[in-house]
Write a protein that binds this DNA or RNA. Structure first.
Length: 958
RNA sequence: GCCGGAGUGGCGGAAUGGCAGACGCGGCGGACUCAAAAUCCGUUGCCCGCAAGGGCGUGUGGGUUCAAGUCCCACCUCCGGCACCA
């Protein structure tokens, strides 16, 4: 076939000629290893035989092995995808062969911005390009031989899937969080306070709406004009959008929010027992950001009333600390209530509701100007401008609850309105931000904590650690922790404060002003004039799904008015029970669909419910979840949140969705050498290059290593950078899986990605490395197949002899190592061991089938196509993919004798061969019997002998 | 700045506190071949030595230990994440 020849030609250019090329048509077919022939054959076989279909319920042991499903981008699969997918595929295949019932599904996270942007650019409806992209992804995934149960495939954009995403939204909408029980409960069970009940139905409805887990809010949001959408805090990195790096401004807008903060405590606490990488747990923990401290009220004295504070204090002491602060106090949150005596000023955020009340007339102009400037500032300005502190004095003072002294109140944007109470007590001696601010504005610095090392602070010095209280009234001399505990109790008793917990986690901004997302199943009531009354109702469950309307114009506007508001009237307006409604026109963010896909995989065709409870109980939780670390916080946190709500409402049986989590590392491009060309011509050393010098790629043959560094071969004084970079289109170092499969075969790609290094590590791509594992597969092939025959026939060395002891020893050690390594996901060392086996077996003149067949069995999860082919050639009934995993016969793992190193003074001086069970004394005797050792010990006094049976002997001498 | 992770041959990497460098790439040598490719075999950390052998070696400097790539302390570099959360 012509194509084979063309492949061969293409390969010449990639530097590895002829590997996968078919012979020219004129020659008879040579029985070489040809993945291009084998791989489609077995993929078709598996498909025809439903080899990997999973039953509805597991029989016996189950394993739910899950990949993070991909976003089907227009570029197709990236080599990063098959890394995690191959790892899970090996585990899935391995478990299946051990008799475990395996759930191993795949689907597509298909809503999202790129499809919509493509639609805007080309006028193609997103559903069309999405379908096309999914087809490409599916083809590529099948090409790699993954053992998914394709009958379970779902895409988040399927109308049937959207239906249940909307249904879960309605569960959130129908749930309130009972803080006492720490549990989500039906909204119908929300206790209605008598005064609300008395105010009538509308008031009750409003009260309920305020307590739902899905609620509307008018808060300022991150509006990104370039993307034409509002973004979640998590999608804004350093003031620009995570996608595309566009500037983001803050704008007040009606938005849907999800009350994830209600679950903050459980999300943090229940993280503890999960089998997740510690680093990911830490990341999530930090993101949730629990801190403990105290809330304290500072009295705002009415002008000219000197006795008011005393009266307030008495009233507070008689009552309780109010749940919500009145307008007569400034409530602050602090993690260091032990520094209360060091407070020299207060700061409130520019958005603080009391700012107006606290602003004195003489300060009004300055304050207004500051507030406006702060509002205009994007987050970018707030974070990036080197944290240069700004602020304005309000002119007011509040009264310190413990000392009764007046404290000046400032406004500054280093205090965030959205955290704690939006106001702080400033302790410049013991907080670096306050310190910086105080220095800039000349405010007092009063030290109240002495460092534990006994030194005392210089005046104006900063100390942020724990220590011993000084100048703190009755608390003086207490250590920080005791102080905090005691003052918390005292504040509570006095009714002016209480211990408090705060979280950095914010509620989840859940609406987007985009077309390509799930519509909200929500209706807004309209009055006779067609204006919203503010009343909302959920679309009835039986009316789901709410489909996206047909639109020809997807463009976002200059304002945050969503594209769906341009839908035709028959979609947009709904009449029900004699009332007119307008549909919600925001759509859900991409996260929505990915929050629960692992549940739908279990029961993808169910039209009655989102998931059958029996099926859920049988399969959940996910036993192994593999994906990129970029989802460490968002996807995993959101999924856990939804799952907990579904759990509280009795829809799932487990509080956590994912048992074991593993992050595969990033695959970088090939290592590149970069030299720098001076503007004046000639090379500049990489360490000395300036911003104007141009980086240039240098071919490996022009570079050599000199000491620690790489230098130009022809100019060794010029240093060159050696580094692998992230794959990117602009750098032109993207490796295309289709191309790799064409050049080397799918089994080689799978095997290479597993052989590169540990799964979790970041590692650079190497095309010669792919050639290396391809060489291994070639050797596997030749172990079984006679390459010199005219057709496919067994190698003449393959025989039915009984295996020798040495062969069985090698075989069982290989099985043992591979089994253990798959269990610990150490695929690279498993492959190394199989290579050793092949190196052992290749020179054998007679190769017993009894060792070849088990070897092919353990090869199968890694290189399934080749294994199937070899299995067939060995005369075994297909498929090897479902053959039983061989058992290790333990006695072959033990040696009769071992070679033990002998050390003198910790230095290796010789080796002795002893029986494997030789004890310390025997070991020592054997070592002393060694002439070389004996000679070294002549004239020395042996002070001590360390002999570890089976491991080593060490003589300590003087 | 803070929090993670990692530094081992020319390269990717291996090593329950017990023989550093498994396995692969690359290099070198050999066999096969008219020749080349492919294949097979051998060799390959660095330095000294014809050799036997010796010395040095896991980012740097200390320490613990009979014994450290592995444990402890300090530091350097690279990668990733967070970044005014009181």
């Amino acid at each position: 076939m012509r194509t084979g020849l063309e492949n061969g030609v293409a390969l010449l250019e990639t530097g590895r000629p002829g590997l996968n090329s078919s012979p020219p048509t004129t020659d008879p077919p040579m029985p070489r290893y040809q993945p291009a022939r084998i791989e489609p054959k077995w993929q078709a076989w598996w498909e025809a035989h439903d080899s990997f279909a999973t039953p509805r319920l597991p029989a016996g042991r189950k394993a739910y092995v899950l990949d993070m499903f991909p976003y089907p981008s227009g570029d197709g699969l990236h080599v990063g995808h098959p890394e995690g997918y191959t790892a899970t595929d090996i585990v899935a295949r391995f478990e299946r062969m051990r008799g475990t019932t395996v759930m191993h599904p795949m689907g597509f996270d298909a809503f999202g911005l790129p499809a919509e942007e493509h639609a805007i650019r080309t006028g193609t409806p997103p559903r069309e390009s999405t379908t096309r992209n999914i087809d490409t992804f599916r083809r590529q995934l099948k090409m790699l031989g993954f053992s998914y149960d394709w009958s379970r495939e779902v895409a988040t954009t399927d109308l049937d899937y959207v239906r249940w995403t909307q249904w879960i939204f309605l569960v959130l909408f129908d749930t309130w969080f009972d803080a006492v029980e720490q549990k989500g409960r039906p909204i119908a069970e929300l206790p209605i306070p008598p005064e609300v009940a008395a105010a009538g139905e509308a008031a009750i409805a409003t009260f309920r709406d305020e307590h739902r887990l899905a609620y509307q809010s008018e808060a300022p949001v991150n509006w990104c004009p370039a993307l034409g959408t509002v973004l979640a805090n998590e999608e804004v990195i350093g003031g620009v959008s995570e996608r595309g790096g566009h500037p983001v401004v803050r704008l007040p807008l009606r938005q849907w929010m999800l009350r994830i903060t209600a679950y903050a405590e459980r999300l943090e606490k229940e993280l503890e027992h999960l089998d997740w990488p510690a680093s990911i747990k830490k990341l999530q923990c930090d993101w949730i950001g629990r801190s403990t401290g105290a809330e304290v009220d500072f009295f705002i004295p009415p002008a000219g009333d000197a006795t008011a504070f005393e009266a307030w204090r008495k009233a507070r002491a008689a009552g309780l600390f109010p749940a919500k602060p009145g307008s007569d106090v400034l409530r602050i949150y602090t993690t260091r209530p032990d520094t209360l005596y060091g407070v020299t000023y207060m700061v409130i955020a520019p958005e603080h509701p009391l700012l107006d009340a606290l602003t004195r007339p003489e300060q009004r102009t300055a304050i207004e100007a500051y507030r406006e400037a702060a509002a205009r500032k994007s987050d970018l300005d707030r974070t990036d401008l080197a944290h240069e502190k700004t602020g304005v004095f309000t002119g007011s003072h509040v009264i310190h609850p413990l000392t009764g002294q007046p404290v000046p109140v400032w406004v500054a944007d280093y205090v965030l309105a959205t955290y704690g109470t939006g106001a702080i007590m400033a302790v410049p001696a013991h907080d670096d931000r306050d310190h910086e601010f105080a220095r800039k504005f000349g405010l007092d610095v009063v030290a109240v904590v002495a460092p534990p090392d006994g030194t005392s602070l210089q005046s104006g010095e900063l100390f942020t650690g724990d220590g011993t209280a000084v100048a703190s009234g009755p608390y003086t001399g207490l250590d920080t922790r005791t102080f905090i505990e005691r003052v918390g109790r005292d504040l509570e008793q006095a009714g002016v404060g209480r211990p408090a917990v705060n979280y950095k986690l914010r509620d989840w901004l859940f609406s987007r002003q985009r077309f390509w997302g799930e519509p909200f199943p929500i209706l807004h009531e309209l009055d006779a004039a067609g204006n919203p009354t503010g009343a909302i109702r959920a679309v009835a469950e039986s009316e789901l799904p709410v489909p996206l309307p047909d639109l020809t114009d997807f463009k976002p506007g200059a304002t945050p008015d969503p594209p769906l508001s341009r839908a035709a009237a028959d979609w947009l307006f709904v009449e029900q029970d004699g009332r007119r409604y307008r549909r919600e026109t925001n759509t859900m963010p991409q996260w929505a669909g990915s929050c629960w896909y692992y549940l739908r995989f279990l029961d993808p065709k169910n039209t009655d419910r989102f998931l059958d409870p029996d099926v859920e109980k049988a399969w959940m939780p996910v036993d192994l979840y593999v994906g990129g670390a970029e989802h460490a916080v968002l996807h995993l946190l959101y999924s856990r949140f939804w799952h907990k709500v579904l759990y509280d409402r009795g829809h799932v049986s487990q509080p956590e969705p994912f048992g074991k989590l593993v992050n595969q590392g990033m695959i970088l491009g090939e290592v590149e050498f970069t030299g720098y060309r001076s503007t004046k011509g000639g090379w500049v050393s990489a360490t000395e290059h300036g911003p104007d010098d141009t980086p240039m790629k240098v071919a490996a043959e022009h570079v050599e290593k000199q000491g620690e560094h790489f230098v130009l071969r022809d100019a060794p004084q010029i240093r060159v950078e050696s580094r692998a970079h992230k794959m990117s289109k602009s750098r032109g170092n993207v490796v295309n899986p289709d191309q790799v499969v064409r050049d080397f075969g799918a089994d080689s790609l799978r095997l290479y990605e597993m052989f590169m290094g540990p799964l979790e590590a970041t590692k650079p791509w190497s095309t010669t490395g792919v050639g290396g594992v391809r060489g291994f597969l070639d050797r596997c092939w030749r172990l079984v197949v006679d390459e010199r025959a005219d057709g496919i026939s067994r190698a003449t060395q393959v025989c039915d002899d009984a295996p020798t002891d040495a062969q069985l020893r090698e075989l069982h050690r290989t099985i043992h190592k591979v089994t253990k390594d798959i269990e610990s996901l150490s695929f690279n060392t498993a492959i190394a061991k199989m290579m050793e086996f092949v190196n052992f077996a290749t020179p054998l003149e007679r190769r017993p089938r009894a060792i070849l067949a088990p070897f092919v069995t353990i090869l199968a999860p890694f290189a399934p196509h080749l294994a199937e082919e070899l299995w067939e050639i060995l005369g075994q009934p297909a498929p090897v993919s479902l053959a039983a995993w061989p058992t290790v016969e333990e006695h072959w793992l033990k040696d009769d004798t071992v070679e033990v190193p002998v050390q003198v003074q910790g230095k290796l001086r010789g080796r002795v061969v002893v029986p494997a069970d030789a004890d310390a004394a025997a070991l020592q005797a054997a070592a002393l019997a060694d002439p070389k050792i004996a000679e070294l010990l002549v004239g020395k006094t042996v002070v001590k002998v360390v002999a570890v049976p089976g491991r080593m002997v060490n003589f300590v001498v003087r």
